[in-house]
């Protein structure tokens, strides 16, 4: 990084640290913070979409669809989320390879599960083993993203379902009395009003999502936790910057990062809540009105 970094062993302390903290592995460590933020920002809308679908399914008039919705929303209640994080990526990976195997290698006569191995033909590998490294990385990240969206979608489905029910019945009844069809009433009356009721739950969900991101580590992604462990571990003379076990400091940095992230989110949600309460016929809205008067 810096010109003086060519021989770290001779440097005075501050230069040594300047070089150490800008080494290639440290840049990768800093980049992993960005990856976590990207995961949060991508997982949130996907989870909301899954959640919306789940809430609609739970409200459905057709029993089978309702059952699917119910199962989906309650699955995260009985089973720890981490089980899903471990299970979903592998399950999807094997499912994709299995389907591709059926399509691309129809005359393969050996069983796919042999003993303890899962063997598909080379053309059915996802991604193909000839693909460049970044394809493998993106694929792993996408699987993780999907797992996060699916689990948090189930959480969101429950929040949204509750919010839909919280909108006073008279509102939709009036809409239907005006001659709107059920879907129209849903779109024009229920949908715009439900968000106020959903916001507290969704803000909480956002917090849980943030706090679940270190689990990326378990999915084999080189995330913050991976690098904190890797960089903090003792480094012997084979490395350019030997040092004793510093993991406690690296994890302290990670801990502070998350505290700052949740504290900032909290501020934003408080502000949003104030905005939403403005002009509402609720206690909070009334207090705002009186304070202004």
């Amino acid at each position: 990084m810096f010109a003086f970094c060519t021989d770290p062993s001779t440097l005075p302390d501050w230069q040594w640290f300047a070089c150490y903290l800008t080494s290639g592995t440290h840049l990768a460590f800093y980049w992993s913070f960005v990856v976590v933020m990207v995961l949060i920002l991508l997982a949130a809308p996907f989870a909301l979409a899954f959640g919306f679908a789940g809430a609609l399914a739970t409200r459905s008039h057709m029993a089978p669809i309702r059952l699917v919705g119910r199962t989906y929303t309650s699955m995260v209640r009985g089973v720890p989320d981490i089980v899903f994080f471990l299970f979903i990526p592998i399950a999807i990976d094997q499912a994709l390879e299995y389907i591709l195997h059926q399509v691309r290698c129809p005359d393969w006569d050996m069983p796919i599960r042999r003993g303890n191995d899962f063997l598909v033909c080379a053309q059915a590998k996802v991604p193909l083993s000839s693909s460049p490294a970044w394809v493998h990385d993106i694929y792993a990240f996408s699987l993780a993203l999907f797992a996060f969206a699916l689990v948090f979608g189930a959480f969101a489905a429950n929040t949204l379902y509750g919010a839909m029910n919280a909108v006073p019945k008279s509102q939709t009844e009036t809409a239907e009395a005006y001659g709107m069809t059920k879907p129209q009433a849903f779109r024009r009356v229920l949908l715009p009003q439900m968000w106020v009721y959903a916001l507290p739950g969704l803000s909480n969900l956002w917090m849980i999502l943030i706090k679940a991101t270190p689990l990326l580590f378990l999915l084999g992604i080189r995330d913050i936790v991976y690098w904190a462990r890797e960089l903090g571990g003792q480094k012997t003379g084979f490395y350019a910057y030997p040092h004793p076990d510093w993991r406690v400091w690296y994890f302290l940095v990670v801990l502070v990062f998350y505290l700052v992230l949740t504290a900032c989110s909290e501020r934003v949600f408080e502000w949003l809540m104030r905005r939403f309460s403005h002009g509402q016929a609720t206690a909070a809205g009334e207090r705002q009105r009186r304070a202004a008067a």
Binding site: I210, K211, A212, T213, P214, L215, F217, V225, A228, R229, G232, R247, V248, F251, L252, V254, L255, Y258, L259, T262, A263
Partner: peptide
């Protein structure tokens, strides 16, 4: 309360372990 609610449990485990072995 903020310290323990504001950070991931997973990180708390890692951090605590490193402190304990020190």
């Amino acid at each position: 309360i903020f310290l323990f609610r504001g950070s991931p449990l997973f990180i708390q485990f890692f951090f605590a372990y490193e402190v304990f072995i020190l």
